[in-house]
Write a protein that binds this DNA or RNA. Structure first.
Lengths: 213, 213
DNA sequence: CCCAAAGTTAAACAAACGTTTAAATTAAAC
DNA sequence: GTTTAATTTAAACGTTTGTTTAACTTTGGG
C-alpha cells in the first residue's frame, strides 16, 4: 500500500462510506461494499467504528462541524448591510452544499429513515443550529427596516429547499435545465452561479420593504 | 376477516407498503414487515406483485396518476388571470402533497437510492410532467406582461423545494415552527395554510413585473 | 356435484447481512 | 532483542433477507 494511503485509513473508510451511503442509501450499502471499495478488510470497520451505525454517526459528526463557523463569522461583521449579508450567505451556502452534496444527501435520507433516535437528534440539532444563524440575518434586516415582514422560518425553508431540490434530484434537473449530465465539477460550474443569481433575485423581491402589502 | 377488508387485499398491501417504505425506506423494509403489518401471508406479496421491487413499481404507478389531471384542467380555464392561476396551483399543490406526503417521501428517497433504472425513469417522468404543467402558468403570465423575467425552472424548484422541506423534515419544522408534534391531521391543519400564504406572498413579489430590475 | 382456476398457507431455499473470533503480522517501548 | 500492544487477516457465527415450493383451501361455472 502506498504511504499516502496509509496515513489515515479511518478517514479513507469514511470517504468511501459517504459515497456509498449517498448513492445507495444506508440500508442499501453493506459493510462488505464499503470494505471492498475502500480496499480494507471487512473486520476493520468494526475495529475502527464498532458497528455500521456507529460509522454513520462518526461520518455525520466529522462532516457537520464544517459549516457553522463561517456563518457565525459572517454575522459578526457589523459593517455589512442586511442585503450584503443575504448575498454573502447565499454565496456561501450554495458553495458549501455543492462541496459536500453527498453528505447532504445522506442527511436528508437518514433524517427520514433512520431507526436510531440518537442519529435523528444529531441531524436535527445540526440543521437547527445552521438555520438559527440564517434567521439572525433576516430578523436583523427587519429591525433595521430594510426587510419587510415575512414568514422567516418558511423563507429559510424556501432557500434551503431550493438548494436541496437541485442537489438531491440531479439528473432530473439536468434534464429540466437542459444541461448534459457529466461529472460533478461541470454540473456545479454550470448550475451554481445560476442558483446564486436566482436565490438573490428571489430574496431581493421577497424581502424588500418596498414590496410591503 | 371482515368482508370490507376482503374487498381488495392488493390495495391493502400497497397502503401498508407505502407507510413502511416512507417510514423506514425501501431497503429498510422487509417483505416480512409488510406481510405482518398487512396481516397477509408472506408469499402473497410475490403472488400479487412478483417481487419486492415490482411492488414498489406498482405503488408508484398507482399513486402517480392522481395529480396531473387537476393541473391540466386548471390551465385550460382561460378566464383566470395569471395571478389567479398561480394562487390556485399553490392551493392545489400544497393540499395534494399533504394528502399523500408518504408517497412523496418515497419518491424523494427512491429517486436517489434505487438501483433500478426503470423506477428512476418512472419517477423522473412523473415529476417532469408535473413541472411542465406549472411551467405553462409562469410562461403564460410572462407573455401577458404580468410576470417579469425570472428563472422559470429554478422558480419551480423553489416552490417544490419549499414544500418538500416541510413534509420531508416534519419533526425538524415542528420544532422550528414551534408546533407540537402530534398526528398528521393537526400538523397539516396548522401548517398548510401558513405555507399557502407564504408561497403566494413569495411568488407575488418574485413574479410581479413591477419588480423588474 | 365436480373440477379447474384462483387464492392461501407453512416450510424451505440459497444468498447476503452485521458482527465476532482467534490467529497472524506489524509497530512501538524498553 | 524481547515483550507488549496495536493492527490486520481469513474464517466462521447466527440472523435476516427475497423468493420459491408444494400442498392445501376456497371459489365459481358447467
Amino acid at each position: 500500500m502506498a504511504p499516502t494511503e496509509k496515513v489515515d485509513k479511518r478517514a479513507h473508510i469514511l470517504t468511501v462510506a459517504e459515497q456509498l451511503f449517498a448513492d445507495n442509501g444506508f440500508d442499501g450499502t453493506s459493510v462488505r461494499d464499503i470494505a471492498q471499495l475502500a480496499n480494507v478488510n471487512l473486520a476493520m470497520i468494526s475495529y475502527y467504528f464498532g458497528s455500521k451505525e456507529k460509522l454513520l454517526e462518526a461520518l455525520i459528526e466529522d462532516r457537520a462541524g464544517y459549516t457553522l463557523g463561517i456563518l457565525e463569522e459572517l454575522n459578526k461583521n457589523q459593517t455589512l448591510t442586511p442585503w450584503d449579508k443575504v448575498d454573502r450567505q447565499v454565496e456561501h451556502y450554495v458553495d458549501k452544499i455543492f462541496n459536500n452534496y453527498k453528505f447532504h444527501c445522506i442527511m436528508s435520507q437518514q433524517y427520514n429513515n433512520t431507526r436510531s433516535t440518537e442519529i435523528k437528534e444529531l441531524i436535527i440539532n445540526i440543521k437547527l443550529r445552521n438555520l438559527e444563524e440564517i434567521k439572525k440575518v433576516i430578523t436583523d434586516g427587519q429591525k433595521k427596516k430594510v426587510f419587510r415582514k415575512v414568514d422567516v422560518e418558511l423563507t429559510m425553508a424556501s432557500v434551503f429547499g431550493t438548494l436541496m431540490q437541485i442537489v438531491n434530484s440531479r439528473s432530473l434537473y439536468c434534464r429540466l435545465l437542459k444541461v448534459e449530465e457529466t461529472d460533478d465539477a461541470t454540473y456545479r460550474k454550470k448550475i451554481a452561479p445560476r442558483i446564486k443569481t436566482h436565490l438573490k433575485q428571489l430574496l431581493r423581491a421577497h424581502l424588500d420593504i418596498k414590496n410591503e402589502e
